[in-house]
Write a protein that binds this DNA or RNA. Structure first.
Length: 449
RNA sequence: GCCCCCAUCGUCUAGUGGCCUAGGACACCACCCUUUCAAGGUGGCGGCACGGGUUCGAAUCCCGUUGGGGGUGCCA
């Protein structure tokens, strides 16, 4: 799954890359048990492509799921060992705890000066120098760490495989990365990486740590607890443009105060220095508001086409008829996945009556006379929304009812529900025969039961 | 435990010492519009975590407290 938090960091990176005419390289280094399964990686690629990040965009590269620099990782580590910037260690965790008597203290540097050679079961540790490490962060400013509090961390495991910290640095180095934009959870490990760069004798990249996204409980968004998969939002009918726009407003705001704005304007307005320092809550309600606005702003053809994945499953679906009511649908849905439930009555001859709606409208004394009158006058009315409305108004006048009351039983008879698309436009789309048929069905249903 | 980060309406944010009686957006409430529901319009509710400084003046600068988050593995 492609995490919404990762998506936002990616978007930040992408904006910067576009501004600088450079390339944003995305490496997904978070492994889980499903790592490298094609269905997992292709899901991520699809989700990113949905956002617009794919090979068609020259400012985007990736995503990479696996490093192709394994040999360089080890070579770099060995260079550090050769220059005594790192040393081999055969201590186990239990050894260290036994010596220090403290389970939550770091490594005690026992092997620092033992001059152990490489060998099976021996890890390679970085020799953290004395002094301080200053991380200059584009978002947070200067952050200073006391090296004495940083343990001699492992570069290479006992089996010779590289640790993430090292692999990450070497990959960045190999790929020519000059700016690292990532979530703030990585900030405490940044001095370690910076020391590796320094030890390798290479100028380290610029750092920028952006705040994390959190849930209602203010905890970092997690796969287990929270709805974080971008794919899920795509499948519910959120628009990529709305998602991009919303994600950008979490932790960043445009200098001119606009929230909803075109993507290219966001790209040129974005500045790392304007990014907030505090975590932001991913608020689906606000995403809904953005999505609704984006949907309403779509032109009709685009809207109809965008609905296709959802409308195709509707029984009896007819594209032309859908197009005729689409303007009314567009105004009322927040997610495209809501479209079928809003319009299925227009296509499916089997009306599904909502029990509450039925009870509320069909058990009144007025229901039967209204439906009978409608049956009579709709038979000869000219078949357009305005005329049908006039007809219905006339029925109501005869009974001393306002249009709101008069239309209710007709609406439930035809659509099955008390709420929905504008009634007379729906009747027009359905056609005279079908409307008359449904009025009859409803009348029978009242009589029968 | 230790280290790091953070702290403005419920939420996202504007605010970089006087323009702040703290502005906007979402949500919520009310009213208007209205064939239902929406959309739209108008209005309302609602916040600088706390305590000390510095200053003529602090949401804004400094210190502390509290609260939250993250990190601290031969995880990534």
């Amino acid at each position: 799954m492609f995490h919404v938090g990762s998506a936002r960091s990616a978007l930040f990176n992408w904006c910067l890359a576009k501004q600088a005419g450079g390339t944003f390289i995305l490496r997904i280094e978070d492994t889980d048990e499903s790592r490298n399964r094609p269905e997992w990686t292709s899901g991520i690629v699809d989700a990113m492509s949905w956002l617009g990040m794919d090979s068609a965009d020259p400012s985007f590269e990736g995503p990479y799921f696996q490093s192709s620099y394994a040999a360089e990782h080890v070579a770099a580590a060995e260079r550090l060992a050769a220059s005594r910037m790192a040393y081999y260690c055969d201590c186990t965790r239990d050894d260290v705890v036994a010596r220090t008597g403290e389970a939550n203290l770091g490594y005690d540097r026992h092997c620092r000066d033992r001059d152990l050679g490489a060998g099976p079961g021996r890890a390679l540790r970085f020799r953290v120098p004395a002094g301080h490490t200053v991380v200059d962060d584009r978002v947070r400013g200067r952050v200073e760490f006391d090296n004495a509090l940083i343990e001699d961390f492992v570069l290479l495991r006992g089996n010779g495989s590289p640790m993430f910290l090292l692999a990450n640095v070497v990959d960045d180095l190999q790929m020519g990365v000059t700016l690292v934009v990532r979530a703030e959870e990585h900030l405490p490990n940044t001095p370690k990486q910076q020391m590796i760069w320094d030890a390798l004798g290479v100028e380290h990249p610029e750092w920028a740590h952006v705040p994390v996204l959190v849930n209602e409980q203010r905890k970092k968004l997690s796969k287990r607890r929270d709805k974080v998969a971008l794919e899920m939002y795509r499948d519910e009918g959120y628009l990529p443009a709305a998602m991009r726009n919303y994600l950008m407003t979490l932790g960043w705001s445009s200098p001119d105060g606009r929230e909803i704005m075109p993507w290219d304007e966001i790209v040129s307005a974005f500045r790392l220095e304007d990014v907030n320092h505090s975590p932001a809550f991913f608020d689906q309600k606000k995403l809904d508001a953005f999505n609704g606005e984006y949907i309403r702003a779509m032109d009709l053809d685009t809207f109809v086409q965008a609905c296709a994945p959802w409308t195709s499953s509707i029984t009896g679906f007819d594209p032309e008829r859908f197009a005729s009511i689409a303007p009314h649908v567009r105004l009322r849905v927040v997610r495209l996945a809501e479209v079928p439930a809003a319009v299925d009555f227009v296509f499916d001859h089997e009306v599904r009556f909502d029990a509450d709606s039925w009870d509320k409208t069909m058990t009144t004394d007025a229901a039967v006379p209204i439906l009978r009158s409608a049956l009579a006058s709709f038979g000869s009315a000219s078949w357009d929304a305005d005329s049908l409305k006039a007809c219905t108004e006339q029925i109501g006048e005869g009974m001393g009812l306002k249009l709101g009351k008069t239309q209710a039983p007709i609406r439930v008879a035809v659509t099955g529900r008390t709420v929905g698309l504008p009634l007379f436009e729906s009747l027009e789309a359905l056609g005279r025969d079908e409307v008359i048929r449904r009025l009859g069905v409803a009348l029978d249903r009242i009589g029968g039961g």
